[in-house]
């Protein structure tokens, strides 16, 4: 982590600028950003701890609490709403047995709604990990969920860190 962070920091004349990239790196490695990780980031960059804490909480892509293996981020902004994202949310909540903002007990899925993902041409859209899934309907959601579950299972079988699903 230190090496990657230092490499990122080299892009800026001021170490403080590297807090965001450093947090992204740290989150990639640790899944989320608990206090000790924030302290480590501050130490590596030699910046005030409170600055790191401020950023880790200001930006919605940073998580200070653990999240599931797959983070389902359903867009519910205007364009997606107009194309039926509300029904998809209800469906996801039933299918997963959780409310939005929650994580399944097996820690597989966290379900969130997010503001516009910038892909309204394929509304309704959901981001899972790095990937966008567009033109969704209930059928496609179900296919997606079973694929994610299968991925997780095969990953567990390979005893590998779950790679995020490809495109």
């Amino acid at each position: 982590m230190r090496e990657k962070i230092e490499e990122a920091a080299a892009r800026y004349p001021d170490q403080r600028s590297a807090i965001m990239p450093a947090l992204l790196i740290a989150q990639q490695e640790h899944g989320h950003l608990p206090g000790p990780i924030l302290e480590e980031v501050a130490d590596i960059l030699g910046v005030e701890r409170i600055w790191v804490y401020e950023l880790a909480t200001f930006y919605t892509l940073f998580h200070t609490e653990p999240i599931g293996m797959f983070h389902l981020q359903l867009c519910d902004n205007v364009s997606c709403m107009l194309c039926g994202s509300e029904d998809l949310l209800k469906h996801l909540e039933t299918a997963l047995g959780i409310k939005k903002g929650e994580t399944t007990p097996d820690l597989m899925f966290t379900l969130s709604t997010v503001e516009c993902l910038g892909a309204c041409e394929m509304a309704p859209v959901m981001q899972v990990g790095d990937d966008y899934h567009g033109d969704l309907d209930i059928g496609r959601i179900d296919t997606l969920l079973s694929r994610l579950r299968a991925d997780a299972a095969s990953n567990a079988a390979d005893d590998a860190v779950p790679a995020l699903p490809g495109e």
């Binding site: 600028s17 965001m20 992204l24 600055w51 950023l55 930006y59 919605t60 940073f62 997010v114 503001e115």
Partner: peptide, 22 residues
């Protein structure tokens, strides 16, 4: 520089603050 989920970063001076690590 990757943003991390905040619409306000599109406002140009907020973007500068964000770039400066604030």
């Amino acid at each position: 520089h990757c943003g991390a989920g905040a619409y306000i970063c599109g406002e140009e001076t907020a973007m500068l603050e964000s770039l400066e690590g604030k």
